[in-house]
Design a protein around this nucleic acid. Structure first.
Lengths: 283, 283
DNA sequence: CACTAGTTGTAAAATTACTACATTAAGTGT
DNA sequence: ACACTTAATGTAGTAATTTTACAACTAGTG
């Protein structure tokens, strides 16, 4: 869709002169949209028809049409592209890149998430007697966060970091319990075992994980997020943010399902915190 | 900036014929950008120069330039706007809204973050003997996540949920220690106290919090994120995501500063996890 | 070395947008 | 109501920009 990306990708298929045109446009796209075909041709040191052919190769009707597409691509303020951090990047670069790739991942996650499943999970959560959130490693903090959210709903919520505690907790499950297991890869052995334990006790197991993973297969319901993880850094980053956003969505769905009177309950929880805080001056 | 809005606002200042042009464009802007001045004039039942004058009145150089602006306005298909979830929203709506407002918040956070401070904090972290991450409530899971990241760097990292443990830990601080305190509002009493304890032991205190808050004033350095929190839900959502992204940025800055050989260390940590995982089939 | 396919440039044609001027419409004062 | 003034609109010609057709060149292949 984005014509700038298209130019970079298409690069191999360009001819020598066309590549010159590509280079000039990529160097300063803003200038390109304000140039006529003649000035652009001069800048790239090629003839006008070459520029025209370049445009056609990118599936546009001609030069004016190409400019339109280019303008649209530039308009998206920053077309959040998943750009990897480079060795030599300074603070400005890597800050920008991480923000942007996080946003790009959220966009991908948004498109990949299955709404009916979300609805179904919210259903289950509202009807649950007890909700458990388990995750290990990076996903532990996601489970931790989920605890923090659902705890406010005055529902029995369970969260353990300890594998043995997780196991024991699942052994005591009943069919009215919902166990939410969080793992990006879905290949953590102990979590898969926990899923099996929980299911053998008739609990409903929801996985926030990859669909075809070992963990995914053990779950009653899987909320999968196709987030491409930047493995260069050997740290889970984007996947975790997407998972948290999903938790937000589930929590929101939960409160909406419970209705207005329930939301007052939340306000009460928040008000209780006031005693532990310094007052805001201007309120 | 947006030309479509400009057309609606400017409506009063248009002449009769110009208004006809405005109407046709607003009715189908997508068609307009693919029309020549002649076809558009015919559609609006006016002469070509009238269309040209219309364009000039909107501070564009002429018809082609106007089309460029129009194309840019149309491109902002989904300008991630912080839209609040409504009572009657279904799963599809609230899912979309939460994703979008999360992205919008990240965009705001990105613009508000102070790069030199980030650089300074990364400096401090790389030189620290011991790094502590403390937060309470929703920010606890952010601190938890930070632990998870920095732990991989083979640096002494400390994280406690318990207030007393946090206090005790800070009492043993030295001037080579860095304490990172996380709080969206910056008005949590016990965290402010912890900041004071840490500073009185010559530790460097970094706050991921609001700049002018009581906590912010006690910190050596403040990384502030001006994220508008959706208070309708009485739950911290966007602020937390922004904080986590900031943690990602700090962790990335940390690894970059440490250089390439250090990154191999990270790979080793990741490889160690392999034993606890099911193998991927296609590797 | 000739031949072919692909690439690039030249020049003319076609399209498109713009300018100058004429015409019409609308408003204002007598 | 009429002349006068000003603004708005359209016509026709001009200028610009883009596109097409074709020729020249380049590189690879038998």
């Amino acid at each position: 869709m984005n014509i700038l990306e298209k130019i970079t990708q298409h690069n191999a298929a360009f001819s020598k002169s066309e590549r010159k045109v590509a280079q000039v446009i990529l160097a300063n796209p803003q200038a390109a949209i304000h140039s006529s075909i003649a000035t652009l041709a001069k800048m790239a040191d090629v003839s006008e028809p070459t520029v025209n052919r370049f445009c056609r190769r990118l599936d546009t009707k001609g030069y004016p049409d190409f400019k339109l597409h280019l303008a649209q691509s530039l308009a998206n303020g920053t077309p959040y592209v998943n750009r990897h951090v480079e060795e030599h990047d300074g603070p400005e670069e890597y800050t920008k890149k991480i923000f942007e790739s996080t946003m790009a991942s959220l966009e991908v996650a948004r498109q990949s998430v299955d709404i009916p499943t979300i609805n179904r999970v919210v259903d289950l959560l509202t009807q649950a007697q007890k909700i458990s959130f388990f995750g290990l490693g990076a996903s532990a903090s996601v489970a931790h966060d989920a605890l923090n959210k659902f705890f406010r709903f005055n529902v029995p919520v369970v969260y353990f970091e300890d594998i043995l505690m997780q196991r024991m907790s699942c052994m005591n499950c009943t069919e009215d319990d919902v166990v939410v297991l969080i793992s990006h890869t879905g290949r953590t052995k102990s979590l898969v075992e926990i899923a099996q334990i929980a299911r053998s006790n008739d609990a409903t197991v929801v996985g926030i994980t990859s669909k075809d993973s070992p963990l995914g297969k053990e779950c009653n319901l899987v909320l999968s997020l196709d987030v491409p993880e930047d493995t260069d850094m050997y740290m889970p980053m984007a996947s975790r943010i997407a998972q948290l956003t999903l938790i937000d969505i589930l929590a929101t769905g939960f409160t909406l399902r419970r209705g207005n009177k329930f939301r007052e309950n939340l306000k009460r929880v928040k008000d209780t915190l006031r005693g532990s805080r310094f007052d805001k001056k201007h309120e």
